[in-house]
Computed example of a mutant assay.
Amino acid sequence: MTSTLTPVPATAVEAPAIGWDGVSVRYGDAHALRDLTLDVARGETVALLGPSGSGKSTALKAVAGFVRPTSGRVLLGGRDVTGEPPHRRGVGVVVQSYALFPHMKVEDNVAFGLRARRLPRAEVAARVTEMLAMVGMTAHRGKLPRELSGGQQQRIAIARALAIRPPVLLLDEPLSALDARLRQDMLDELRRLRGELPDTAIVYVTHDQTEALVLADRIAIMRDARLVDVGPADELYHRPPSAFTAEFLGGANLIPAEAVAGGARVGDRTVPAAHSAVASGPALLCVRPHALTVEVPGPDGLPGRVTAVQWRGSGYRLEVALDCGATVSADLPALTGVPAAGEPAAVRVGAACVVAREEP
Rank of each mutant, 00 (worst) to 15 (best):
L227Q: 04
V13W: 08
V205A: 07
R357P: 00
L60T: 01
G28Q: 11
V355L: 01
P282N: 11
R239Q: 13
L169S: 11
A345L: 07
A341W: 05
I164Y: 08
G28T: 11
G53W: 06
A12D: 15
D229E: 10
V309F: 04
A62G: 01
L335G: 12
V63S: 09
E235I: 10
V91I: 12
A264F: 07
T327K: 02
A180P: 00
S24C: 05
A30V: 15
P344N: 09
A125I: 06
D217M: 03
A252M: 08
L49Y: 00
D172H: 09
Q153N: 10
V124E: 04
E14D: 14
A30S: 11
R68Y: 10
L190Q: 02
H290I: 13
G151D: 06
A308S: 10
P303E: 04
S314I: 07
V46G: 06
S149L: 11
V67K: 00
V338S: 03
V168S: 06
L249E: 01
P86G: 09
L335N: 11
L292I: 13
A334R: 06
H87P: 00
V260S: 07
G251L: 06
G43Q: 02
V354S: 02
L335H: 14
R146H: 15
S329N: 08
A32Q: 03
H140K: 06
A111L: 11
A64S: 12
I255L: 11
L322M: 12
P9Y: 10
